[in-house]
Design a protein around this nucleic acid. Sequence first.
DNA 1: CCAGTTATTTGATTTCGATCAAAGCAAAAG
DNA 2: CTTTTGCTTTGATCGAAATCAAATAACTGG
Lengths: 249, 249
Amino acid sequence: MTVTAANSEVLIRCGECPIRVQAVCAYCGPSELVSLDEIKSYKTYKPGETIVWAGENLTVIGSLVKGIATLSRSLPDGRRQMVGLLFPSDFIGRTGKRVAPFDVVATNEVVICQFRQPQFDQLIKTTPSLERRLLDMTMDELDSAREWMLLLGRKTAREKIASLLAIIARRTMALSAASPRDGVAFELPLTRETMADYLGLTIETVSRQISALKKSGVISLRDSRHIVVPDFIRLLDEAGDDSDGGFID
Amino acid sequence: MTVTAANSEVLIRCGECPIRVQAVCAYCGPSELVSLDEIKSYKTYKPGETIVWAGENLTVIGSLVKGIATLSRSLPDGRRQMVGLLFPSDFIGRTGKRVAPFDVVATNEVVICQFRQPQFDQLIKTTPSLERRLLDMTMDELDSAREWMLLLGRKTAREKIASLLAIIARRTMALSAASPRDGVAFELPLTRETMADYLGLTIETVSRQISALKKSGVISLRDSRHIVVPDFIRLLDEAGDDSDGGFID
DNA sequence: CCAGTTATTTGATTTCGATCAAAGCAAAAG
DNA sequence: CTTTTGCTTTGATCGAAATCAAATAACTGG
């Protein structure tokens, strides 16, 4: 299990955490070692596999260690809306709820560090700083979800695509410490269908708008999954919003 | 300040709380009285008044005591999306954030029980159960926001209207303990414009779809603000979803 | 009660994105 | 190498909701 603070400080680390091996609670000070090994168990999911079914019993509680998973809900006739993306260090499940409100689906090979509910509750109770951190993370997610509501409710297809690309570009830039006016290149971690389900659009519209942005010179494509953004500011402009959305932040 | 638990148990009550007068923390047991009077202050806002401006310094932290407020964000060209409704007992603001992410606007006359940031942080630190409660509330809001994303991204105009009416009808029924097959009557607390901003629609479409639902016999109107739902199940059906959304739950 | 806003409804038309349809492409399977 | 399969692009058409426009209804303050 990995919990990353706002300032990127690592609070608790698991054995299979990609960053480090020791289980340490940084909040409680380095002196306080949390023995997670007894209460956690790792589970691996194949690409496309459903980790949690909406409406079913919510048994999984823990955090994503490796891979990317999607949170989504579907209407009876199949219309689907993605409502969140889970990256390593994000939580799955929640305390005090019996029924899962959303589907959780693995896009890659996903590894989850899973806890038993009573033991996780205990861990939270005995680690106030963890609860505080959980609260902050949840509030951030809430802000992101609401930001996304603005996109879903009011943005045009072109603005939706630009917003999504901007968010991914921003992630990439943050990692490479590039400036906004530099070119950014990245690989789309999503299929056109997933993008469509995210943005409340159809596959065809996604494809068309990407083509349109290409024709306008806002982006260029090496292949369908590799995007190059020559001018990030220009892309932000197309997103319609002054700020950057930040759904996947 | 009023914090209501999932089971409707009241945790902390302020002087002007509509339910009771004493300031009591029920979680910490009735023995533990929380002296809120020294750190809180009441503020009243007129209908239409903006309590918090998105992008500006977030100074308000506290909870809504009376009235209804909306949470919204706008695009530079004026397109607006409502992202939440605040009812009495709901929180405004959050710890550890300098800039307000959304506008908070009073629809009625609104009374807010306001705290100073450092003192509120202190209150949270010394009241672990309060933090736990805050976490639960925030997670519920997150689930609701995501549910709303499904509506915004994938539902038709008719389904959107039906969903909103169903949520309000459900609230009304819960208060009157009526059964789903009974008729429900309620007053819309929102203008057509507010509804439109909520649902990601225009005023005209809202009006048209309400007329259409009336013509289909799903609802009837005494006047534009007073809705009668003869068969709640029928309305739920029109909402497209099996479950009830619950955005305003 | 009336003039003057401010909501709401209804109608006509347009437009953006969905739908229907088919072709191109690339990776995996045989 | 060819076939299959899944993903993506592009084209033609359709339709739901937006936009433009105007009438009606409801509320405001004088």
